[in-house]
């Protein structure tokens, strides 16, 4: 899926979270967005994912404006997008395995196949031993990896990661970074971080400051 934003602004009350941002994300882009807290990184990712509707300007998926989709169409298209949330956003009442099967089951994949694919994905992120635990019992790094597994299990074209290294030690940080690069090979990857990490080099880097891309 190709994503493009055209002069997108998002206004929450008196706060202008995004201020006329334009961005092209053809399939296969690897982009790092960095900037201080409150600069609009989370909002940018949520606009790309179709979770936040722009106050003005357009966001397009494969050339079609997202605002014109019906609720059902939008949800169907969102299958091409996966997002790792800042707060992990794991479903507390479900086990790790159920967290990862959930997106598949809700897309109409059969129970058995969903389970197999979820187990394969969990193995890929190195969590085969924790499938039956609940999210609260996991460490920060493990929770992050459950989030990665849930985001990629449906095989999205675009993977969005909102501050995936927050609260992780340097070793875990590198492991999560490598994992993100590996699972998104040949697809679009957008990572938002407070400051560019030394260990992770993506071809494109942009600084987002108070809702605008800083001119390099």
């Amino acid at each position: 899926m190709n994503v493009s934003l055209d002069e997108v602004s998002v206004v929450h009350g008196a706060v202008r979270a995004l201020d006329g941002v334009s961005l092209q994300l053809p399939l296969g882009t690897q982009l790092l967005v960095w900037g201080a807290a409150g600069g609009g990184k989370t909002t940018l990712l949520k606009v790309i994912a179709g979770l936040v509707t722009p106050s003005s300007g357009q966001s397009r998926w494969d050339g079609r404006e997202v605002a014109t989709f019906t609720r059902g169409e939008r949800r169907a298209e969102q299958a091409h997008l996966g997002m790792i949330f800042q707060s992990d956003a794991l479903f507390d009442s479900r086990t790790v395995l159920d967290n990862v099967t959930f997106p598949l089951v809700r897309r109409g994949v059969g129970e058995r196949e969903a389970r197999e694919r979820a187990l394969a994905t969990l193995e890929r992120v190195g969590l085969s031993h924790a499938v039956d635990k609940t999210p609260e019992t996991l460490s920060g790094g493990m929770r992050k990896r459950v989030g990665v597994a849930r985001a990629i299990v449906a095989g999205p074209d675009v993977l969005l990661a909102d501050d995936p290294f927050a609260g992780l030690d340097p070793v875990t940080e590198r492991a999560v970074g490598d994992l993100l690069l590996e699972v998104s090979r040949g697809r679009t990857l957008v990572i938002a971080v407070p400051e560019p990490p030394r260990t992770l080099a993506l071809p494109r880097q942009l600084e987002l400051d108070r809702g605008r891309f800083a001119q390099p």
Binding site: K46, A49, L51, R71, R75, A76, Q78, A79, L81, G82, M83, F85, Q86, S87, D88, A89, L90, F91, D92, F102, P103, R106, R107, R150, A151
Partner: peptide, 14 residues
């Protein structure tokens, strides 16, 4: 507030 609703939307669930 934990973004779980948005995670649900991206999991194709209303």
């Amino acid at each position: 507030v934990n973004e779980q609703l948005e995670a649900m939307e991206l999991s194709a669930a209303d």
